[in-house]
Simulated scan of single mutants.
Amino acid sequence: MTAATQQVEPTTADEDILAVAREQVLERGEGLSQDQVLRVLRLPEGRLQELLGLAHEVRMRWCGPEVEVEGIVSVKTGGCPEDCHFCSQSGLFATPVRSAWLDIPGLVTAAAETAETGATEFCIVAAVRGPDRRLMDQVRQGIAAIRESGNDINIACSLGMLTAEQVDELAEMGVHRYNHNLETARSHFPNVVTTHTWQERWETLQLVRDAGMEVCCGGIVGMGETDEQRAEFAVQLAELDPHEVPMNFLIPQPGTPYEHYEPIEGPQALRIVAAFRLALPRTMLRFAGGRELTLGDLGAEQGMLGGINAIIVGNYLTNLGRPAQRDLTMLDDLQMPIKALNDTL
């Protein structure tokens, strides 16, 4: 039963939302409703640590202590025909990013470097509306070469919108998880992207689920959305019930329509992370792009103790991340075990 359909007792304004969440989410494992998430997002800053502590308890209760580590690589960078306003890879904006392809040896090397960090996931990403025959063949050859090298890391893909035939082909290649972000609340999406719809993305995710692959779907916060739309988005993700939700924070990219947006502040970002954990108690919640800019080192540690249980290490496509070893050291310092490969197969 999803957060969108479950029957939840209505709460009144004088009830403490964290007390409600402790009973509803921590004890029963039922995600917060949209109105309840909104109330969490509007908690005063003085209650942030209490909120983070509850989110961590929920993560430990319903997901356990392990952290899944992932690396990503772009097999096709830049030149995308879509107008996602946050993205430096759109060919419609005057950004510094130029179109480029990664060759098969480069893909094998990237997968090996990812595996060396202890990561169990390697995600192949392409800046496209959806894959053409050339890209599908490149992915097939790349996966075969990675396997022939002796690397048994799990392989995920993020190649845009898919047809049913393409979904089946990726599943046959051995792709076990597919990422396709909804990016933001349905009500805000037309302000972010105009060249395709939120519904088109949703339909691809349903095809992925029907094919038996794991669904990875999240978005970006800080793109001008309201608290109400953040709450809406959290519950829409809960309705989708993805295996994983990547949490990205906007990096204002030169040349894009959002280049002058101010990054959201660290305490606000942590409150959003915790609110999403309370809406999605059983879902893998992954720190992704923008956390270094928004949170810094201390904030990253607070996030890991505030509901996060997965992390991308290394770089994020066209943006630099922290060195992988710094994140691995952080997890060691926090005594958070890294999920083993044999537990993910």
Results as ranks from 00 to 15, higher is better:
residue 139 V to G: 01
residue 220 I to D: 00
residue 139 V to A: 03
residue 152 D to V: 02
residue 154 N to H: 08
residue 215 V to K: 12
residue 140 R to D: 08
residue 132 D to Q: 12
residue 213 M to Y: 13
residue 213 M to V: 01
residue 200 E to N: 11
residue 202 W to P: 02
residue 170 L to E: 04
residue 146 I to C: 08
residue 130 G to F: 02
residue 147 R to D: 08
residue 191 N to G: 07
residue 217 C to D: 09
residue 212 G to I: 06
residue 189 F to T: 01
residue 194 T to R: 14
residue 200 E to L: 11
residue 194 T to W: 11
residue 225 E to N: 07
residue 133 R to M: 03
residue 211 A to F: 06
residue 176 H to M: 10
residue 172 E to L: 09
residue 148 E to T: 14
residue 211 A to Y: 08
residue 159 L to N: 09
residue 133 R to T: 14
residue 212 G to W: 12
residue 193 V to L: 13
residue 228 E to V: 04
residue 141 Q to W: 02
residue 164 A to T: 13
residue 217 C to L: 05
residue 207 L to Y: 10
residue 184 T to I: 02
residue 217 C to A: 14
residue 196 H to G: 01
residue 198 W to M: 07
residue 161 M to C: 03
residue 150 G to V: 01
residue 198 W to P: 00
residue 155 I to P: 01
residue 214 E to Q: 15
residue 131 P to I: 00
residue 144 A to V: 06
residue 229 Q to F: 04
residue 182 L to G: 07
residue 159 L to W: 08
residue 132 D to A: 09
residue 178 Y to C: 05
residue 163 T to R: 06
residue 165 E to K: 12
residue 194 T to L: 10
residue 175 V to T: 03
residue 137 D to V: 10
residue 209 R to W: 11
residue 187 S to Q: 11
residue 165 E to A: 14
residue 188 H to W: 14
residue 223 M to S: 01
residue 215 V to W: 07
residue 224 G to D: 11
residue 216 C to K: 08
residue 201 R to N: 13
residue 206 Q to L: 15
residue 134 R to A: 14
residue 141 Q to R: 13
residue 148 E to L: 11
residue 193 V to Q: 10
residue 205 L to S: 03
residue 135 L to H: 08
residue 221 V to F: 15
residue 228 E to N: 03
residue 181 N to L: 00
residue 154 N to R: 13
residue 140 R to V: 01
residue 140 R to T: 06
residue 221 V to Y: 12
residue 156 A to N: 10
residue 194 T to H: 13
residue 148 E to W: 04
residue 216 C to S: 11
residue 153 I to T: 07
residue 149 S to Q: 10
residue 179 N to S: 07
residue 225 E to M: 08
residue 191 N to E: 15
residue 202 W to R: 14
residue 209 R to L: 09
residue 152 D to G: 06
residue 223 M to E: 00
residue 168 D to R: 13
residue 220 I to P: 00
residue 193 V to K: 08
residue 153 I to D: 05
residue 180 H to A: 12
residue 216 C to G: 10
residue 181 N to C: 05
residue 170 L to A: 06
residue 168 D to T: 12
residue 213 M to E: 13
residue 176 H to P: 00
residue 144 A to Q: 13
residue 218 G to L: 03
residue 169 E to P: 01
residue 202 W to H: 14
residue 179 N to G: 02
residue 229 Q to R: 07
residue 173 M to L: 15
residue 143 I to Q: 11
residue 190 P to Y: 10
residue 202 W to T: 09
residue 153 I to Q: 05
residue 198 W to Q: 03
residue 135 L to K: 05
residue 192 V to P: 00
residue 182 L to I: 03
residue 198 W to I: 05
residue 216 C to W: 05
residue 141 Q to V: 02
residue 217 C to R: 00
residue 177 R to W: 03
residue 176 H to S: 14
residue 136 M to G: 01
residue 168 D to W: 04
residue 168 D to P: 00
residue 138 Q to T: 11
residue 150 G to Q: 11
residue 215 V to S: 09
residue 181 N to F: 00
residue 176 H to R: 11
residue 150 G to I: 03
residue 199 Q to V: 15
residue 154 N to W: 00
residue 173 M to N: 04
residue 229 Q to E: 15
residue 218 G to C: 09
residue 151 N to Q: 08
residue 180 H to D: 05
residue 196 H to E: 02
residue 226 T to V: 07
residue 187 S to C: 04
residue 137 D to L: 09
residue 205 L to H: 05
residue 140 R to K: 14
residue 138 Q to R: 12
residue 146 I to N: 11
residue 201 R to E: 07
residue 145 A to W: 00
residue 186 R to T: 05
residue 152 D to Y: 04
